Simulated scan of single mutants.
Amino acid sequence: MLYTADQVAQLPGLHADSDGFRYLLVSLHNHVLTITLNRPEKKNALNPAMLNELAFALAYAHYTSAVWMVVLTAAGDTFCAGMDLKALSMGDTEQARVPEPLGPVRIGEIMADLHKPCIARVQGPVYAGGFLLVGGSTYVVAADTATFSLPEVKRGLFPFQVLAVLLDCMSARTALDLCLRARTLSATEAKNVGLVTEVTVINELDMAVSRLTDELKQFSPTAMQFGLRAFQQLKSLPSSEQQAYLFEQFRQLQQTADAKEGMTAFLEKRQPKWRSE
C-alpha cells in the first residue's frame, strides 16, 4: 500500500469538517465503501491528483475493518476514459488534498492489494487505462449499453499494464487480441470473454449491484479477505510452496473471531454475526 494506516485514519470526504476529495465522491454505508469517479467533464480520465486520491481511498478500504467491500462507480456518461495523457505529461500543479504517496501509483497493483471484494458498477464506456479498474475488480456489473475499448495501438502505444490485468480474466490469446486489434466490445461480448461478470439494463444497474453486495454481506468478511490475499500471493509462489502456504493460511483463519463465530452459529443453527476479525 502507498499509504499507511495512520495516514488514512481520517479519510477526506467521510467527515463533516473535511474539504473532501477533488475528483472522488466517497461514502461508507453498511460496510460498503462506494468510491465514485467524479470528473465527468473529462470523462473521468485519470490525472495525477485523481490517481493519488484513488490510491488513498483504496488504502482506507484496505485498512478499515468496517469496510467489507468496495463499489467503484463513476459520474457522467463515461465510466473512465483511461489515463489523462496531457496531465500526466505536463505534471500536476494542483494543491493536493491527500498526502503524497510513498511511491508511484500503479492502479493494477493497488487494486490487487485491496484484498476485499470490489464491484465495478459500469454505466458507460471504458477506455484504455480504465480497464485497470474494471479488470482489477472482483466483480463487474455493467449496463447493457456500456462498451469496452483499448485504442492504444491506434496512437502508437500499447496497453502493457492492462495486458497483465487481462491475463487474470481471460485466455492469453483473447487478451492479446483485444490489445492488438483495438476492437470495441459490447457489454455482452465483454461478459463472454470474462471481463464482465453480469450485464443488466441501465435502469436496473443499482439494483443488480445491491443484490450482489447484500449477498456478500451474508458471508465472513475475514474469510473473503484471507482468500483474496492468498489468491494474489499464489502468483508469486513456486508450485512447490503453494500447498504449504495455503495450509498455513487455513490454520491462521481458523483462529479468527469470524471463523469461531461461523462454527458456533453452524452448531447452534443460527445466522452468524460477523465482526470482520
Rank of each mutant, 00 (worst) to 15 (best):
S240M: 05
D84Q: 01
V162Y: 04
F158K: 03
R229N: 13
L267A: 07
T174Y: 10
G156K: 14
E100G: 10
G76Y: 01
L267P: 01
F226A: 02
V199M: 09
M111A: 05
V71K: 07
G103D: 15
V199E: 13
S27P: 08
A5Y: 08
L132V: 02
F219Q: 10
L72Y: 00
K86N: 12
E241H: 11
Q243Y: 09
L212S: 00
D206W: 02
F131D: 00
N52V: 03
D6S: 09
A172D: 13
A75G: 01
H29A: 12
P125D: 11
V126T: 11
L72I: 01
L166P: 03
K191W: 09
L205I: 02
E204T: 08
G129Q: 05
G20T: 07
V209D: 07
A175Q: 10
N38Y: 07
V193D: 04
Y63W: 15
L234M: 14
I107Q: 06
K42W: 06
L163G: 03
L37F: 11
N30S: 15
R39H: 14
I202H: 08
E241I: 06
W274L: 04
A230N: 06
D206S: 10
R251C: 14
D84S: 01
E204L: 07
D17H: 15
D6C: 01
R155W: 10
S220W: 03
L132W: 00
H31C: 08
N203S: 06
V140Y: 01
D113S: 13
L185A: 04
S149M: 13
F56A: 12
L237P: 05
D17A: 14
W68N: 14
A172F: 15
E198A: 08
L133P: 04
N30P: 05
Y3Q: 04
G136K: 01
L14G: 13
M207Y: 01
S210I: 11
L14I: 10
A164W: 05
V153D: 06
F158G: 05
H15D: 13
E94D: 14
Q161L: 11
H31Y: 09
E100R: 14
S149Y: 06
Y63T: 09
T73R: 04
R229K: 14
Y3M: 11
L180W: 15
V122W: 00
V26A: 15
P238L: 06
P159K: 09
T174N: 10
N47D: 15
G103Q: 12
A74K: 00
P151R: 06
I119F: 00
M207S: 15
S171N: 03
F231N: 13
V162G: 02
V199S: 08
Y139V: 03
Q271T: 13
G91V: 02
Y139H: 13
I107H: 07
E109R: 08
L54W: 02
T200E: 13
Y127N: 09
E198W: 01
Q225N: 12
L51T: 07
L72R: 00
A112L: 08
K217C: 12
A61C: 14
T174Q: 15
C169H: 08
S27D: 15
A223Q: 03
D206E: 15
R275H: 12
P272A: 09
